[in-house]
């Protein structure tokens, strides 16, 4: 369906833990959906997310001109789609939500991507994907070790400014270290703060590799975490903003990339 104000396109961001879909007409976001991954087939979840989005926007699937797919699990989405790489999607998405941002970081469940960008074009990119220590998975393991969910971990961390060092980089070793810290009577809030600080340091390192420039925009599922943002802001010493709908930035970027 071609109209004066652009095509109807959809972007699917098939991440390690969730499937995100965004629907655009030109540069107008018509609707979006975020579904949990779980054990179900990724193609089926993607179809459901697309159907949900179409319903919200009041259109049918046939109305969509083009569907783009990105994210770690993109190759499991067996639909008629065009694959767009993550850096392009992030740059486009950032340009949509926060065009003034020159540095961006997407923190996902299994990997992180830092980038310098301008006008929706990635200028320099760095991935952290080989190791769980720079991803949301690190916080998952910390929260599980402390027998709480991530929202609780974040609240706990925010309740103090003091922290104990979590020295292990490896998530597996950090798990043992945190157990030892708990047994040594360290305050749980300070352990939580320490874990956030450790992750923030690694993300900051990734940002330094692409060059830190004002304004920094944070995207991805983990970025809405207030404690992580607090730590990252302290380290970076500049303003760090979260995209308004941080978890669909990539999906939006994908839809915009095939406009």
């Amino acid at each position: 369906m071609v109209t004066d104000d652009g095509l109807l396109t959809a972007g699917i961001d098939a991440g390690a833990s969730r499937i995100k879909v965004a629907l655009f007409k030109g540069r107008r976001l018509l609707g979006h959906a975020v579904l949990e991954g779980g054990a179900e087939n990724i193609t089926e979840i993607s179809k459901r997310a697309l159907a949900d989005t179409c319903r919200i926007a009041g259109i049918t699937l046939e109305d969509i001109c083009k569907i783009a797919v990105t994210g770690m699990a993109y190759k499991y989405v067996h639909l008629e789609v065009e694959h767009i790489n993550e850096s392009t999607c992030l740059a486009r998405g950032i340009d949509f939500f926060m065009p003034e941002a020159r540095t961006a970081i997407d923190v996902g469940a299994q990997k992180s991507l830092a980038m310098k960008c301008k006008g929706g074009v990635p200028l320099k990119i760095r991935y952290s994907e080989k190791c769980a220590s720079g991803s949301g998975r690190f916080l998952d393991v910390v929260a599980a070790t402390m027998a709480m969910d991530k929202a609780e971990l974040s609240r706990l961390g925010l309740s103090t400014q003091d922290f104990v060092e979590v020295q292990s980089t490896c998530t597996i070793f950090a798990e043992s270290e945190i157990i030892t810290l708990i047994h040594s009577d360290a305050k749980p809030a300070e352990i939580a703060r320490g874990a956030y600080r450790a992750l923030a340091r690694r993300l900051y390192g990734l940002l330094l590799q692409v060059g830190l420039e004002d304004v920094v925009c944070v995207a991805g599922g983990v970025s809405a975490d207030a404690c992580l943002l607090d730590e990252l802001t302290k380290l970076a010493g500049c303003e760090i903003k979260t995209a308004r709908q941080s978890d669909i930035v990539m999906a939006c970027g994908a839809a915009l990339a095939v406009q």
């Binding site: 299994q110 080989k130 190791c131 769980a132 393991v141 490896c170 998530t171 597996i172």
Partner: peptide, 10 residues
């Protein structure tokens, strides 16, 4: 695919 003990588990 991954040598990371956490990711290898997946």
């Amino acid at each position: 695919d991954s040598f990371c003990a956490v990711f290898a588990e997946n």
